[in-house]
Each structure stands twice: as C-alpha cells, then as structure tokens.
C-alpha cells in the first residue's frame, strides 16, 4: 500500500510505548516474540524503534518516535496500535479501530482512496 500511494500520501510509522515490555503488566517475550524492556528515555526507545524497523522490514517507510512521555500516543489513544489518516485539511479523515483486533490496513486503503478522490 505504501508503494502504491507514497507519492500522494505521506506515510509515517509512529513508534509509541511498548505494548508488552518485559517489565510491564502484560509482558510477552520469547517464543518468537521480541524481548524488550520498557525504554526509559528517548535514546533507548530510539534504539528499540530502529531494531523494530529493521527486523520487521519497515524500512524505508519513514518512522517517527514518540517521546517517552507518550504525549502523541496518548493524544491519539494509539495504544497498543492504531491507524489514522489525516486529511489534507488537517482534520482526521479516518480513525481506525483499536488494535490488535480492529487494526485494519484495508480500511486505511479505502480511506486513502476516498480522501484522494474528493478534492
């Protein structure tokens, strides 16, 4: 999807608070799931974000990292994961359901096509 629309839409992966850090309340790790302790400062989170980007082959889609105060993630109620599309006018044109079950890239594509077709 990124490759198809990248010229007309800016895509960003916004890296937010770890959903399941080892030292958190619902840790996951091992058995194929990454082992990550909760980053305590931005440089730690940047390191994890970079690893994630590489390991999950997200590059070259641009990634931005939310600071450890989680201001952006909280403002968008983005945890644990979520998709938004911001229209050209600066308003939210699509808000995805909360992940993991309602995280639906197909809906994003539909929203993008709608956004690009209405001027």
């Amino acid at each position: 999807m990124w490759r198809t629309y990248r010229d007309e839409v800016e895509f960003f992966v916004v890296y937010i608070r770890e959903a399941h850090p080892l030292d958190g309340y619902s840790p996951l790790g091992g058995d194929g799931h990454p082992i990550v302790e909760d980053p305590q400062d931005l440089s730690e989170r940047n390191r994890v974000a970079k690893t994630c980007s590489t390991r999950l082959a997200l590059e070259p889609m641009p990634m931005l990292v939310d600071d450890v105060d989680d201001v952006v993630g909280d403002a968008y109620a983005a945890h644990p994961d979520r998709i938004y599309l911001v229209g050209r006018d600066g308003r939210v044109s699509y808000r995805g359901g909360e992940g993991p079950f309602l995280f639906d890239p197909g809906e994003l594509e539909t929203a993008i096509r709608l956004e690009l077709s209405t001027f």
Binding site: Y5, E8, V9, E10, F11, F12, V13, V14, Y15, I16, R17, E18, A19, H20, P21, L28, G29, H33, P34, V36, V48, A49, T51, C52, R55, L56, G73, Y76, A78, H79, P80, D81, R82, I83, Y84, L85, V86, G87, R88, D89, G90, S93, G99, L108, I112, E115, L116
Partner: peptide, 16 residues
Amino acid sequence: SFRGSKPVALIFGSYT
C-alpha cells in the same frame, strides 16, 4: 507541515 498539500497516514505501534 503537510496541511494543504498531502494527507498523512499515521500507523501507530510498537515492537512488542
């Protein structure tokens, strides 16, 4: 900075 020019898709998530 993209307002007025391009829509922006934001994909929020983390590694774990």
